[in-house]
Amino acid sequence: MRAASSVPVVSRGYDGGKKVAGRKRHVITDCLGLLLLVAVTAADVGDREAAVPLLQRVRAAHRSLRLIWADAGYTGMLTDWAREKLHLVLEIVKRSDEPRFVVLPRRSVVERSLSWLMRSRQLVRDDETLPATSESMILWSMTMLMCRRLARRTHTTTTSMSLAA
Rank of each mutant, 00 (worst) to 15 (best):
R121V: 07
M137D: 06
R23V: 11
Q56R: 15
W81G: 04
H62W: 14
R149H: 12
L90N: 01
V102Q: 10
D15N: 15
A151E: 15
V110K: 06
S160T: 14
W116P: 07
R125E: 12
L36R: 13
T156S: 08
L145E: 08
K24V: 12
A72I: 03
D15A: 13
A164G: 12
V38N: 01
G17T: 12
R95F: 06
T75D: 07
A51T: 03
H87V: 03
K85C: 07
Q56I: 01
T133P: 03
L130Q: 13
D80T: 10
L36G: 04
T75W: 01
V10P: 00
R48Q: 12
V124C: 10
L123I: 12
P105A: 14
V38D: 00
V9F: 12
G17P: 05
A82V: 09
E84W: 11
V109R: 04
D30C: 12
A72D: 06
R121D: 10
V20T: 11
S120I: 01
E98L: 10
A151N: 09
V9R: 15
G46E: 05
M77Q: 13
R148G: 09
V9D: 14
S11L: 03
S160P: 06
M142R: 05
T79G: 04
S108N: 13
T29N: 09
Y74T: 02
M146C: 11
A43T: 00
R25F: 09
V40W: 01
M142W: 11
G46W: 04
D15M: 09
R125M: 13
R23W: 10
Y74F: 14
R100V: 08
R148F: 15
A165F: 13
L123H: 15
G13W: 12
A60K: 13
D30M: 06
M118P: 00
G33R: 08
P131H: 12
H155C: 10
D126C: 11
R107G: 04
H62V: 08
G13V: 06
R66K: 15
S5T: 09
R23K: 07
A3H: 01
L117D: 09
Y14C: 08
L104A: 13
I138W: 05
L37H: 12
S64G: 08
G76S: 06
T143L: 14
S162L: 10
